[in-house]
């Protein structure tokens, strides 16, 4: 058995394209998921019975069904209802929805972690909930949200590989495509594993760095 580096070099272009698409898909899905997640968390906390139940059902459904099954569901079932979308679009939707469910729980947990007295003091001063959320609650939970969102970002990068099964041309799909032509699974799977590994390591290093540099800002402001 030999490791043929030439296979990797010969196919660097599709690998680079796939890698770029993986990064792109995740970079778009994460913020969309987060915005939806904040909305869902607020609905679940303050939406009244109907909206809170809806948000809870959405979150629980997405968290309790495998991502691959969700992807198939969207990919094969949407056309049944006349909605024909490209694999890439289905991939975006699936990943953003998935991210939103997890982000919702992160944000909800974070808001609940702030003592009730903070919100009450805000109300007692005559502030509205929007101001309390923006000026009092969210700034206090950044230190809590940052590390958990790193895990979410890494989770998304890993889950995005699943999109290859519906032919979204991301890294894993390109890898399988190359292997289909070159019959060199060892080299190609090794290189994409390294690429994923490097990417997730980069994300966690970056946020560790951020955490360390924001630490004085995030906690010294609390406790001195």
């Amino acid at each position: 058995m030999q490791f043929d580096v030439a296979v990797i070099l010969d196919n660097w272009q599709p690998l680079a394209d796939g890698f770029a698409r993986t990064i792109g898909i995740c970079t778009v899905s994460l913020p969309i998921g987060f915005i939806l997640g904040v909305a869902l968390a607020l609905l679940r906390l303050h939406g009244g019975l109907v909206f809170a139940t809806f948000a809870a059902a959405y979150v629980e459904l997405l968290r309790n069904i495998p991502f691959l099954t969700q992807v198939f569901l969207l990919y094969f079932v949407l056309p049944e209802f006349g909605l024909r979308l490209s694999p890439l679009v289905v991939g975006f939707i699936a990943l953003s929805a998935y991210a939103s469910a997890y982000a919702a729980e992160i944000v909800r947990g974070a808001i609940l972690s702030v003592p009730a007295g903070q919100t009450e003091a805000g109300y007692a001063l005559g502030l509205g909930y929007a101001t309390i959320l923006r000026r009092i609650l969210l700034p206090q939970v950044l230190g809590y949200i940052l590390p958990t969102s790193t895990n979410l970002a890494i989770g998304l990068i890993k889950e995005s590989a699943v999109l290859s099964v519906i032919t979204v041309p991301e890294l894993t799909y390109e890898a399988q495509d190359i292997i289909g032509r070159t019959f060199s699974p060892v080299e190609i799977f090794t290189i994409i594993a390294l690429l994923y590994w490097g990417l997730t390591a980069l994300v966690s290093t970056l946020t560790k760095w951020l955490e360390i540099h924001l630490q004085p800002y995030l906690t010294a402001r609390r406790t001195g």
């Binding site: 058995m1 590989a161 699943v162 894993t172 699974p185 060892v186 799977f189 594993a193 994923y196 590994w197």
Partner: peptide, 19 residues
């Protein structure tokens, strides 16, 4: 922790026999 499970499975199923 840093690589997709799908890739791990593909490695074990397709690459391991080759190795």
């Amino acid at each position: 922790r840093g690589t997709p499970l799908l890739v791990q499975i593909l490695v074990i199923y397709y690459a391991l026999p080759g190795l």
